[in-house]
């Protein structure tokens, strides 16, 4: 009887550990699907994609917003920082930084940016640049991750202007290190 109880407790313990592992790494599987559908693995340290507002054909991300235009950069700052530049519109705009486990560790919006022009140095723990000028430094807690830019389309009157802002986005490696 004792042996049966002991075995049951061990099985429950292992089951609980497996459950915790599944929950802990569930996002890895979802990111794998996202990377595969967007081609993120082949487009590191560059602009991965710009989107129009989401439609019923939009896949890859669940519950997309149809009131926002997105731009996505993927990054790897293990050896070199990334420099992100773009002019920003007068309407709501934000840039959000996500570590490789999808944590949103920094968000800047249009009210945080002076002169309507964004210049961010995204650095890794071991890839700090010698000098930076006229920009904001953001430290990524992981070597890899994602950058998501959101632009509110409002009543849709300035869609073309917002697309022009999208096209001006640059995510490139910073070589002065």
């Amino acid at each position: 009887m004792k042996s049966y109880l002991k075995k049951s407790l061990v099985l429950i313990l292992f089951g609980f550990i497996l459950h915790i592992l599944f929950i802990s790494y569930f996002h890895v599987g979802m990111l794998w699907v996202f990377d595969r559908e967007t081609g993120a693995n082949d487009s590191v340290n560059t602009v991965l994609l710009h989107t129009d507002t989401a439609t019923s054909d939009t896949r890859g991300l669940k519950r997309p917003s149809s009131d926002v235009m997105y731009s996505i950069c993927t990054y790897d700052v293990k050896y070199k920082p990334l420099i992100i530049t773009t002019p920003i519109p007068d309407s709501y705009w934000s840039i959000s930084f996500y570590s490789k486990n999808t944590d949103n560790y920094v968000t800047l919006n249009d009210l945080d940016i002076e002169n309507k022009y964004l210049k961010v140095y995204l650095v890794g723990i071991n890839s700090q640049p010698k000098k930076v000028s006229n920009g904001t430094v953001v430290v990524s807690p992981s070597d890899t991750g994602y950058i998501l830019i959101r632009m509110f389309v409002g009543n849709g009157e300035n869609l073309q202007q917002l697309k022009d802002f999208q096209e001006s986005l640059s995510c490139i490696e910073y070589n002065d290190i």
């Binding site: 569930f26 599987g29 996202f34 669940k62 519950r63 959000s96 996500y98 994602y146």
Partner: peptide, 11 residues
């Protein structure tokens, strides 16, 4: 984190 991965990924 798992909930967000299921319903929105980049929240």
């Amino acid at each position: 984190r798992a909930y967000v991965a299921t319903y929105g990924l980049f929240a």
